[in-house]
Design a protein around this nucleic acid. Structure first.
Lengths: 197, 197
DNA sequence: ATAGCAATAGACTGACTGGTCTACTTTGAG
DNA sequence: CTCAAAGTAGACCAGTCAGTCTATTGCTAT
């Protein structure tokens, strides 16, 4: 398994198609066609479509985690400012894909959680990893005294992740980033508030 | 089209299967099998699978709207209490289906928004109708002085809907209603706060 | 040079997809 | 009673699905 170029091409094409159409609506043949790889190669690298899907999730999760770290653990920027940058990046991406794609993990979580425990476990782990990134960012904010709330950073991180995922879903059906802006606005105005003097 | 029993059976079975497995993963034959209706009847009542899917959405939306009205416009109960009842009902349902089903409209919004404009429009309308129910409940709360916030009820309603949908998604992957409880907790503790004396 | 394995290549399979077709039964209006 | 329309019934269709199979190529260690 020295040459992983073919495997990577399959995962990249798969991630793109699955992001756009979902897992069930994306056939293996469509993936093969979109990257010009024959079926023999596919089943050389992956034992099944599920195996392939899990590889797509894993790849997406690791590369996405890198950008998450770059934004949320950038110590040259105040913690709440980092959060705002994260939201801005998400909005930019939503606009770039014309509100069609959204979040791959969120999409698959919705589509496959009830269908396969293997998928559910994998997606749940990804969410938990993300949540942890928010936790440390919020802890930084709390340590600096930027947040007055007595709510635990863990609960706050969960609240932000779910709210953001919901906003993405709504943005897709509305074809507008307004719900994402609305979420951010209320979050900073009501939840992540500075301590009163 | 006097006797709609068969049509209703199809829609009921379809709603159940689509809720559990999603639209793409639910074949017409599976629907027919689950309610013992032959294919001839299906295509007598519906011109295509898409047509059927839209009927399922419409039916779900109207029946769900009735329970929404019953809870959110119950004038014998204070507005914020009505909201809490709504959340409690959602949590009960989530537990009843063992965290597998979630919200049909949310599921389909995620799965089909990028796939078909017809579906997206239909689902968007449902969301907007729901949002309106929240708006009037929040207006009641504001009129009674139960809410201090200067945020417009329209924005607040959007925030609640997206946050709730996100919490449902997270609850599915986590197989726990904790995210739903967490959302409600922070919402009432930080956002829907009484005016300070 | 060659044996052996990794990888490529795509024809092929059975099961299943959404959708069509024809035949039959029931119903209600005249 | 009659006859057309509404509705039931399921065999059937072309296309697609995930997955298998055999054949061939390319590389590498001996």
């Amino acid at each position: 398994m020295k040459n992983n170029v073919t495997r990577d091409k399959l995962i990249d094409s798969g991630a793109q198609l699955i992001s756009q159409q979902g897992y069930n609506a994306t056939g293996i043949n469509a993936v093969l066609k979109s990257c010009g790889v024959p079926k023999g190669s596919f089943y050389h690298y992956f034992s099944s479509k599920e195996d392939f899907g899990l590889a797509v999730i894993e790849r997406f999760a690791t590369t996405y985690d890198e950008t998450l770290v770059a934004i949320l653990e950038d110590n040259d920027t105040p913690p709440l400012e980092r959060l705002k940058r994260y939201f801005a990046t998400g909005r930019d991406y939503m606009l770039a894909c014309d509100h069609t794609t959204g979040c791959l993990i969120g999409n698959l979580g919705q589509e496959l959680s009830g269908q396969s425990d293997t998928f559910r476990d994998a997606l749940n782990l990804v969410f938990q990893r993300w949540e942890q990134r928010f936790v440390s960012c919020l802890q930084d904010a709390k340590a600096r005294g930027d947040i007055a709330t007595c709510i635990a950073p863990e609960a706050l991180a969960g609240f932000i992740l779910t709210g953001w995922e919901g906003a993405i879903l709504r943005a897709k059906t509305l074809k507008s980033v307004a719900p994402m802006e609305q979420f951010e606005m209320i979050l900073f105005q009501q939840v992540l508030v500075r301590p009163s003097p």
